[in-house]
Computed example of a mutant assay.
Amino acid sequence: MARFSIYKNTDDHTKTTPYVLDVQTDLLSDLNTRVVIPLRNSDRYQHLNTTQDLMPRFSIQGRDFILDTPKMAAIPSKYLTKEIGNLRDQQHVVIAAIDRLFHGY
């Protein structure tokens, strides 16, 4: 497991939330949980006026997804089994979304 890795969602909400993004520092990899942010189908947000820096859009495997930063949560590490990619090259956007949520800027 690694920070900014994208994993297939393995719970019952895979239709609306097919992926989650690991945002926890790798320095705490010995914990049995990881903090993740859901990556939700962008079509769920067409009618909402979301703040782009809080809930940025990413293209994953040719489809658009919204990082639902306000829904960040810790989940057991054992559920993160199918890594499909990463957002390391976009980490500045992810960190800006987390900063917006916690610091307001």
Rank of each mutant, 00 (worst) to 15 (best):
2 A>N: 15
4 F>I: 02
5 S>I: 02
5 S>Q: 09
5 S>E: 08
6 I>W: 01
7 Y>P: 00
7 Y>W: 14
7 Y>K: 04
10 T>C: 06
11 D>G: 04
12 D>T: 04
12 D>C: 03
13 H>E: 12
13 H>R: 12
13 H>T: 11
15 K>C: 02
16 T>M: 09
16 T>F: 06
17 T>Q: 11
20 V>E: 00
21 L>I: 07
21 L>K: 02
22 D>Q: 07
22 D>M: 05
23 V>N: 01
23 V>D: 01
25 T>G: 15
25 T>N: 14
27 L>M: 10
29 S>A: 12
30 D>R: 07
30 D>Q: 11
31 L>C: 10
31 L>A: 13
35 V>M: 11
35 V>H: 03
36 V>N: 00
36 V>G: 00
37 I>R: 00
38 P>C: 05
38 P>Y: 05
40 R>Y: 04
43 D>V: 13
43 D>C: 08
44 R>F: 13
45 Y>D: 03
45 Y>Q: 03
45 Y>E: 01
46 Q>C: 09
47 H>F: 10
48 L>Y: 13
53 D>Y: 08
58 F>V: 07
59 S>P: 00
60 I>F: 00
60 I>P: 01
61 Q>L: 11
65 F>L: 10
67 L>C: 08
72 M>G: 03
72 M>L: 15
74 A>F: 14
74 A>H: 08
76 P>N: 08
76 P>D: 09
78 K>S: 12
78 K>N: 11
80 L>N: 05
82 K>F: 10
86 N>T: 04
86 N>P: 01
86 N>R: 02
86 N>V: 02
87 L>D: 00
87 L>H: 02
88 R>N: 14
88 R>V: 14
89 D>A: 13
90 Q>S: 14
92 H>S: 13
92 H>W: 07
93 V>G: 00
93 V>I: 15
94 V>M: 04
95 I>D: 07
95 I>L: 15
96 A>L: 11
97 A>T: 01
97 A>V: 03
98 I>Y: 06
98 I>G: 04
101 L>R: 08
102 F>M: 11
103 H>N: 14
105 Y>I: 12
105 Y>M: 08
105 Y>Q: 10
105 Y>H: 14
